[in-house]
């Protein structure tokens, strides 16, 4: 703990990130450039989320990290221990006990409260990047609200597959202005982005962008009148806790075609099992 400044980053870096967060909150959905630093982990492992968390954490916080909903995967475990060591904060795996939650690609099933902050790790913050590779052009498109290309992409989905096949990183429009990439969360989670009580912060380390959603911001998933947005999930129950309402991972069990579906949110699943719910595959 004494070997590091509080929360690893130096104070000047934190001030720069904090200024970017404030501008992000003032312009919901707009990507604020920031001078992302080298972190002691590779790009793609959550360097953006880690820098945002470092700028936001206080010693009084309780910190939780999830990776695809799970508290016990490599990425989540390393980031949690990183902040235990450099910030001395309490950590937890319980969603309800956490004040700051850093997430890779999921929103917890448990609804978040006004006392919580959700920090997303974002790989590609620009929703238009795969349609237009030039940053100078996508900036111009955002400034002119020129989002026709995104609708063409969704329309091509429909003409090719009969429905909008985009199933994660599904583009949203924030307060009727900016089209935003919600990070690669499954589209099942998209409705939770809107009107959330917690502050949502997005950090993209390699791409050097921060953006934000203040609480109770209106976030709409893009769609068409005749092909409305649908938050889909696997049509099964959780094999361990029997949950009907949670997002499920498919786990291959053997080479005979055996498989089971389990909650991707491990804390949600464990809490349900502790409360006595039991699925068909539970031991």
């Amino acid at each position: 703990m004494t070997d590091y400044n509080f929360a690893y980053l130096d104070e000047q870096t934190k001030r720069m990130i904090r200024r970017a967060i404030l501008k992000g909150l003032a312009i919901p959905g707009y990507q604020v450039p920031f001078a992302s630093r080298e972190m002691p982990m590779p790009y793609g492992w959550g360097t953006g989320g880690v820098q945002v968390s470092a700028a936001v954490l206080t010693p009084d916080d309780t910190f939780k990290v999830i990776d695809q909903g799970a508290d016990d995967t490599t990425n989540a475990v390393s980031i949690r221990s990183f902040f235990e060591r450099t910030a001395g904060v309490e950590t937890t795996t319980a969603t309800t006990e956490a004040s700051v939650i850093q997430t890779r690609h999921r929103i917890p099933e448990e609804p978040l409260t006004e006392d919580q902050i959700l920090v997303y790790q974002v790989p590609i913050p620009e929703p238009l990047r795969f349609l237009e590779p030039r940053e100078s052009e996508t900036r111009k498109m955002h400034s002119l609200e020129e989002y026709g290309l995104m609708h063409v992409k969704l329309y091509e989905d429909i003409s090719r597959h009969g429905h909008i096949a985009t199933s994660y990183a599904y583009p949203v429009k924030v307060e009727g202005r900016y089209v935003m990439d919600p990070s690669p969360i499954p589209k099942f989670d998209n409705p939770k982005l809107s009107d959330m009580a917690a502050i949502q912060l997005f950090g993209a380390g390699r791409e050097q962008r921060i953006y934000a959603l203040p609480p109770y911001t209106q976030v709409v998933s893009l769609d068409f009148e005749d092909h409305p947005f649908e938050a889909s999930k696997a049509d099964h129950l959780c094999g361990l806790c029997d949950a009907t309402d949670s997002y499920l991972d498919e786990v291959i069990m053997d080479d005979q075609g055996g498989r089971m579906f389990v909650c991707s949110d491990t804390d949600y699943c464990e809490a349900r099992r502790a409360a006595g719910h039991k699925g068909k595959d539970a031991a």
Binding site: F6, E11, L22, T58, I199, P214, P215
Partner: peptide, 19 residues
């Protein structure tokens, strides 16, 4: 203690700007 004071102060500013 600048790192701790500024962390608390920033949370107040951030909460104010977010709400």
């Amino acid at each position: 203690t600048p790192p701790v004071n500024s962390a608390h102060a920033f949370r107040a500013v951030m909460e104010a700007m977010a709400r």
